[in-house]
Amino acid sequence: MTDSRDALMLGRASDGRLVRRPLSPHLQVYRPQITSILSILHRATGIVLSAGTLLMVWWLVAAARGEAAYATVSGFLRSPVGLLLLFGWTATLWYHFCSGLRHLAWDAGWGFTLPVVHRSGWTVVIAAAVLTVLTWIVAVIVI
């Protein structure tokens, strides 16, 4: 094995025997591209948002339980840690939201050519950033 191209030729047959044949590139040697990065981010933000539902459940339960419980959750959400979590949650939410719309467009058969894929990818990144900043401008004005 002399270089990474050789490493990519090392596979296993179904009986476990080593064979030389072309394989899909592994993540380590795959140049990061907007397509793959955004795809990974969509999954990652989905996982983070699933964990983030705990925050929503806590808020709902506290509001249902009474004044003291609601004061606790409100206090936490206004603390530096709470605000950081909320900021992360909104950024993650808006990314997954915009990226999800892109996926729905693909499901409808739209936007498969490479130039459009690149353009829609950057649109998602910019739209998510704008929506996050907009949410927090409104939040700062309201609070």
């Binding site: 509001a63 009474g66 004044e67 609601y70 409100s74 949410t135 939040a139 309201v142 609070i143």
Partner: peptide
């Protein structure tokens, strides 16, 4: 956002 910072009675 409209409810942020308001008391529980409003929520």
């Amino acid at each position: 956002l409209r409810l942020a910072g308001l008391p529980r009675s409003v929520v």
